[in-house]
Amino acid sequence: MPYSPTRSIEGTVIAITGASSGIGAATAAALVDAGARVAVCGRREDRLAKLVTELGDDKVVPVAGDVRDPALNDALVAAAVRKWGRLDTMVANAGIGAYGGIMDLDDAELTEMVETNVLGTVWSVRSAVKQFRSQGDGGDLVIVASVAGFRGGADEAVYAGTKHAQVGLAGSLDRELRAEGTRVTLICPAGTHTEFAIGAGRIEGSAVLDSYLHPEDVAHAVRVVLEQPRAVRTTVWQMWSMQQQS
């Protein structure tokens, strides 16, 4: 047979964290469109229910909860396995941010940001790897981070620190897990027009948001890396809109 640079992900089973809105919800829609089945989690149960209504309860299973809880991540994987028998991919997408100088945000805000962005990613990865190893055939880990993980900006020091942590985590996981058939992809978008940081440094309706990436752009990147042949891996994908400074 002739070589094909793409493969179908129809019928694969994918877990997505932070899927109640923004990039996570767009990714769920893009992957279901490609024929995948998705288990989604987020803190807003009503948003997850809306996603199920839009995409179909035969294609989506929701699990409400906070990604900072290791048990939530285990429950997400278990829901996918219970409904479809396996897990092929984890998209660790959940994340929050707020703008402000190092002394401007309070202790609770900073703690939530670090725990969500760093520990939430670690817990989702561990839950997925445990399942991949029980299946014995590897899988895909896709970590949605940010270009801030390579170059932090003013008034986002702690946020950028959490994204640098994700960059380091992904690089190490690639070296650790590749031999057992697990690919690790780091997707790093610049500013994306979502609910991210609205009221915490971004203003809903601001004209600058129109110059940002769309969540569907990032969702497309996730789909592209998953549709690569299993012999190919993309380790880092940075994304900017044409109107944004890099």
Rank of each mutant, 00 (worst) to 15 (best):
I14T: 11
A80H: 09
Q245T: 15
S21E: 07
K163A: 09
C41L: 10
A49I: 07
R183F: 03
S211K: 15
V147L: 04
L141Q: 01
F150Q: 12
L51N: 06
T27A: 10
Q243M: 09
V208G: 13
G139W: 04
S127R: 05
V144D: 07
I203F: 07
S172I: 01
S211T: 15
A30Q: 02
V224A: 13
G205A: 12
A165T: 01
M242K: 01
V232S: 13
R223H: 15
L186R: 04
M239P: 01
V81C: 05
N73P: 01
L213R: 02
R47T: 02
D46C: 06
F150C: 07
S124P: 04
A71E: 14
G100R: 12
D66H: 03
L119W: 11
R151V: 12
K59S: 14
F150M: 10
S211Q: 13
A34C: 00
Q135F: 05
G168A: 10
C188Y: 05
G199V: 13
R47D: 03
P70Y: 10
A71P: 00
I187F: 03
A19D: 00
G191L: 15
R175E: 15
V232H: 09
A165Y: 03
L226A: 04
V67P: 01
V13H: 02
I96H: 01
V38G: 04
L119I: 05
P5E: 14
G152A: 15
A94R: 00
V91D: 08
V144H: 07
D66N: 10
V122T: 00
A200S: 08
L55G: 09
G149L: 03
L72D: 03
A64H: 08
